[in-house]
Design a protein around this nucleic acid. Structure first.
Lengths: 135, 135
DNA sequence: TTAGAAGCTGGAGTGCACTCCAGGTCAAGC
DNA sequence: GCTTGACCTGGAGTGCACTCCAGCTTCTAA
């Protein structure tokens, strides 16, 4: 089974231009072409693209993803370096999660504050309405 | 008490250029100047810069931060909109945390795999050494 | 009083990750 | 056989968030 570039774009959430860009810079291997020169992606290609998408979400730079992609070509011999990249990324993700958690506190504090301001303003408007009613 | 731009840069972790850039684009109010025309930042300025830093960590764009900064000028009247911005940002942060958590699974899976490959390679090398010893 | 450090301005340059475009090819349906 | 739409290429353009620079002024310390 193989897929057109449009199908891959659809299923991966990347644009067609982005897929071609990733190929140009060596993130994706050039897929086979059909008789008319169009790209046909295999299941393997799809899985790799899904994986790229996933590690992109962790905030990995394209530079690092390219290194990782290049290392795949060396098979088991590059397992050590690839493991290291994943380890570094995990460290990164863990600290980013912690960072975001601490930001939540600030956000919540601000939200509470604005809520209080809004409540006070609503109350004031209520008072005015009452005055208007009794005047 | 007031601070030179170098001191603010030091304490905020932003560069001097970035501080001036933020001022240019309206993220930071122009601080008062000393007799020689140099910027002197107040405690209030510092607090605002710290806050900016914090919400930047949440991934808020400069565009949104600028809107938020501009809204401050309207005081309580803008509390509603500012609360909304913080609410949106909180939603964002929560989903990003969830996303990162799910990425951790992939990272862990990969790390385990590479560990297994390395273990196997180490074992093979061990065998070779033994062979070498007995040959 | 003078050298050097720190700060100033407006504007240009950078790196990243795409995104768009002009002009061309190819296959399918009418 | 001709139109239409998907796809192709190389290269230019975009938006974001800085970052750097030249050429100037001002304070400080020897």
């Amino acid at each position: 089974m193989s897929f057109s570039i449009a199908e891959v774009a659809e299923s991966s959430g990347l644009s067609i231009d982005t897929l071609r860009y990733y190929e140009r810079i060596g993130l994706i291997d050039p897929p086979v072409r059909d008789s008319g020169g169009r790209r046909r992606y295999t299941d393997d290609d799809l899985r790799w693209i899904e994986f790229l998408n996933k590690i992109k979400l962790t905030g990995m730079s394209i530079k690092t993803m390219r290194e990782y992609a290049a290392l795949r070509k060396f098979g088991d011999a590059s397992a050590g370096r690839r493991k290291q990249i994943m380890l570094d990324q995990r460290t990164d993700v863990l600290s980013r999660i912690a960072e975001l958690q601490s930001c939540l506190d600030v956000l919540n504090y601000k939200i509470d504050n604005y809520q209080r301001v809004e409540d006070r303003l609503a109350e004031l408007r209520g008072d005015l309405t009452e005055q208007g009613a009794t005047a």
